[in-house]
Structure formats: structure tokens, C-alpha cells
Amino acid sequence: MRERLQEWVPRIVLAPSFVAVLIVVYGFILYTGWLSMTNSRMLPNNEFIGLANYTKLFGLKHWSIALTNLAIFGTLYILISSVLGLFLAILLDQQIRTEGFIRTVYLYPMAISFIVTGVAWKWFLDPGIGLENTMHQWGWESFEFKWIKDRDFAIYTIVIAAIWQSSGYVMAMFLAGLRGVDNEIIKAAQVDGASGFLIYRRIIIPMMRPVFLSAFVVLTHLAIKSYDLVVAMTGGGPGRATEMPATFMYSYTFTRNQMGVGASSAIIMLIMIFSIIIPYLYSEIRVGADKR
């Protein structure tokens, strides 16, 4: 009897966490999925209306703005962060004497809340007191930088702040990757006569493929979820110019009393993230299993 109990202890220990995750993650996903097909407004109700919310969602101008913004933001953010991260990692990999200090500086934004980042950049880019004003003070009277107040350009200010926040992280990922390159491979390339530049272009950077992939997944995930930074910097404005799916979901659900539409937008976000994460995790786990 005691033996049998011992056998069950591990499962009993794991059970609360597992049940909790099952309910609050998967149960809630199902519930939100159900809500997205109901006529819920301020409060949830169970009046089934099929995919009407999705039809409505994709007919909404706000939603298409949000998707366009996500596309612009996501593309620039992922691209620039990756390139900058790799570039900085390569620079830092040249036996820099103060590497520890520089690495610490490049990475500290990652420790800060997006809200704080948002506040700093919001006022730094504010034409009235920030960069523009400062340039005027320095005597460059014609300098103009009003992007954050401009409907067409506000989204790019969010890109700037987001890159500031996460490029150091990408740098750290690439640096770890570069440090993992077998020294003998570099020596072999030197014996083959390759120059420093060529060694990076032909051998080391191609070896960073897995890091590019991880960075892509992490950054995509952050881009789709990005909410805090937009709220702190622009609040989705000016107008709705910096609306993103995450802010859209929040405002439709909690301030516009269109819970059904909000739920359907959340489901779309989930589909976007999972369509990238699941193949990635699957391949990671398979590679891991192969190694064992």
C-alpha cells in the first residue's frame, strides 16, 4: 500500500500546477474562443452567433490599422534588432578590454519595464521639451522631429524605443553563439587564407542560423504581445495611429464593451503566435531528442 502511494507522490505533486495551467491557460483559451463566437458585449453571454465577430473584426478599420501597424512594427523591430544585435556582438567579440562594462550597458534596458522605457522616450522625443527643443537650444533652429505627434510616423517612434529596449538582448544571444564557435574552425579558415571579414561572412555568420531563429521567435513573440510600450508612449495615438492588436483587444473588451470582438481579436493574436512558436518548439525538442 505504502509502495503504491510512493508511486503516486510525484503525480500528486505535479497535479496542482498542471491542473492550474490546464484551467487558466487552456481552459481560458477555450472560454475566450467560445466568447468570440457569442454576442457578448459588456458582460459575457452565451448567445451563439458563429463567426460573426470575426467577420465584423476584419471589417473594422481599427483592426486593419492595428494589423498594418503590427506588420510595420514587427518587420522593422525584428530586422533592425537582429542586425544591430549581431553587429554589436561581433564588435564585442574582438577582445574588447572593457567588454564586461559595455555588455552591462547594452543589456540594462532589458531589466526595465516597458512603461519606464515608454516614459523616457515619450518625453525625449516630445517636440516641446525633448530632442527637437534641445537641438533648437544648441542653435540648430530648423531641426524638426515631430514623429511622435505625427499620425504617419508615430509608429516608428515605438520601433525606436522597442529596439533600444531589446537589441542588447539579441546582442547577448549572438555573443553567446559567437563564443560557442570552435576556435579551431577560425584557425582552419586562417590557414585557408580567409580574411577576418570573409571568415565572418562565409563561416561564422552562417553558423549563427540557430541564433537567428531563436531571436526571430523571441522578437516576434514580443512584437505581437507589445502593449505596455504603446500605452506608455502614445496611448495608441495620435488618434488611433499607433493602435496594435494588443491595445485593440484591450480597448474593445474593457472600454468599448464589445467583448465578443475583443475575444476574437485575442484568438487571432494567439493563432499568430502559435503558428510561429509551435513549429519552433517542435523542431527544438526534436533536435534535443536527436542529441540524446
Partner: peptide, 30 residues
């Protein structure tokens, strides 16, 4: 002199093959 100018060739303990190139590419890179 740079290693490539010394008229030597080297075989490494870890073999140091370029992982992103085929065997042909490895041999012909130099």
C-alpha cells in the same frame, strides 16, 4: 607571415570542418 602565406596545411583535433559547407566546399574553400 600570415598562416596562409607559410605554405603549410593543418589538421585539427576537432577537425574544424566548416559546418555550413559541404565536404566539397570544405576542401575547396582555401
Amino acid at each position: 607571415l600570415h598562416p596562409s602565406k607559410r605554405d603549410i596545411a593543418m589538421v585539427f583535433q576537432s577537425y574544424a570542418l566548416y559546418p555550413n559547407m559541404t565536404v566539397r566546399g570544405n576542401i575547396s574553400f582555401g
